[in-house]
Design a binder for these strands. Sequence first.
RNA 1: GGAGCGGUAGCUCAGCCGGUAGAGCAGCUGACUUUUAAUCAGUUGGUCAUGGGUUCGAAUCCCGUCCGCUCCA
Length: 509
Amino acid sequence: MLDNQTSENTSMPQTQTDENHIIAERRQKLAQIRSTEIAYPNSFKPQNNAHKLHSQYGNMSHEELDNNSIAVKIAGRMMLKRIMGKVSFATLQDGASKIQIYVSREKLGDELYLNFKQMDIGDLLGVCGTLFKTKTGELTIAVTEIKLLSKSLRPLPEKFHGLVDQEQRYRQRYLDLIMNSESRQIFITRSQIIQSIRNLLVEQNYLEVETPMMHSIPGGATAKPFITHHNALDMQLYLRVAPELYLKRLIVGGLDRVFEINRNFRNEGLSTRHNPEFTMLELYESYADYKRMMELTEQIIRKTAMDALGTLKVDYQGQQIDLEKDFERLTITQSILKYNPEYTLENLNNSEFLRNELIKITKTTPSDTDSLGVLQLLLFEETTEAKLFQPTFILDYPLDVSPLARQSDTNPDITERFELFIVGRELANGYSELNDPEEQAIRFKKQVEQMESGNDEAMHYDANYIRALEYGMPHTGGLGIGIDRLVMLLTNSASIRDVIFFPQLRSVD
RNA sequence: GGAGCGGUAGCUCAGCCGGUAGAGCAGCUGACUUUUAAUCAGUUGGUCAUGGGUUCGAAUCCCGUCCGCUCCA
């Protein structure tokens, strides 16, 4: 039996290298178990869990527990083990909670007690027993039956410090989840946030939909796509950079309020704020505009904060963020002036000045074709964005960088578009959608020109989308919210990798 | 892409102005009938990320590479 195991191992080069005496000893124990019983049984059915036991019985006195003889049956992973001769204590982890078990030779008999002593930290155990309280008042299960449910062959990280190594926390997230309850809590909060958003939108008669992840023409955002290939169709496909153009096709189709929470893929660098695949909420609402979208943005962020944290005063990396007050609304130039008093409005309306300023700050020269609005936006990104700690909507994005947004009725150079910034980061982006097919065609052509002059983030011409618009799309408000960044904000996480289970890392062989 | 920091036992870390690698936890053996990161005694375990170089001698100094973290572009 043991020989079989080792020969299997040698055929798996990965496990070969990191086998050590601890694993070898545990494999031997497993072989021993295999020879006498079913090593991985699946019939144990827990009737209780640690969390509920604590909340139901945690306040009962020693006497109450002793008199009632409360029988329980739970399963969990052994995290601590203290053998003291003829009796032992161990801690089982069951979900987010832990409960202590008390094992005595007197109660179990010699054989079972010896079995228990053979069990290792990390093993999954099933336990039956009755509740009591120890001298120090800790709710504990006095074990009458104990069963190994799943043998752990690899030792867990150190019991006190847990798993600290960042790389290992990301590559072996399951270990992080076993060892670090804070990490576990972050992902539970993430799930709650997404659930809150669903609830809020469904209450407002939104329909949750799914649109293609593989696009024959990438669209909906200015970003570099991942390219893949479909063999049977023998065609190039792109992983989507945004679902926007498909969701708006659904608006054309008369699904008046749609949303999608799903992955986007952008072939760009990694950072504490960027993962190549990330989760976006995108929603579209017919007969609405960007102002309604700003209101909805505030609603969503407040509701998720209340549901996840129970407060609208959020602490992020040592700073207090106030989500309660109306979010500030500033145009690009207003925000630059507010946070950079050295500039005047005259400066900001002077392309030459902006150009020189940008050269000074970035050491690179802006493109000759950049309009005044684009230059203002570039200066905003350099000087102001990072300072927008409290929630701030930035309005009036230039037409040139907003090829899918509706032009302002009063100023043809800008669009009815906003971005929301919190803790110096873009969190949301929304606009009144461009529903004029002829104008959209012109915008696409401009993008194609840019692509031809070397901009690999420019959009493609999507004739199919134009065709859809030509059937008539209602005027519409659209909104995108970066879910990972929202989760970062609400879980006080410094890196996007801390809110994605399996962040992208370089592969190691 | 650039800069800084890091990679030592299964885990958490020390050792880094060069002299053959250490602690705690985990493991193993033994003691222990209410422990709480149990305790006590003994003990196993390392190609110091990797490849070169300098040197009588390298975990330690130098260079390259890989992986990670942070900042910048």
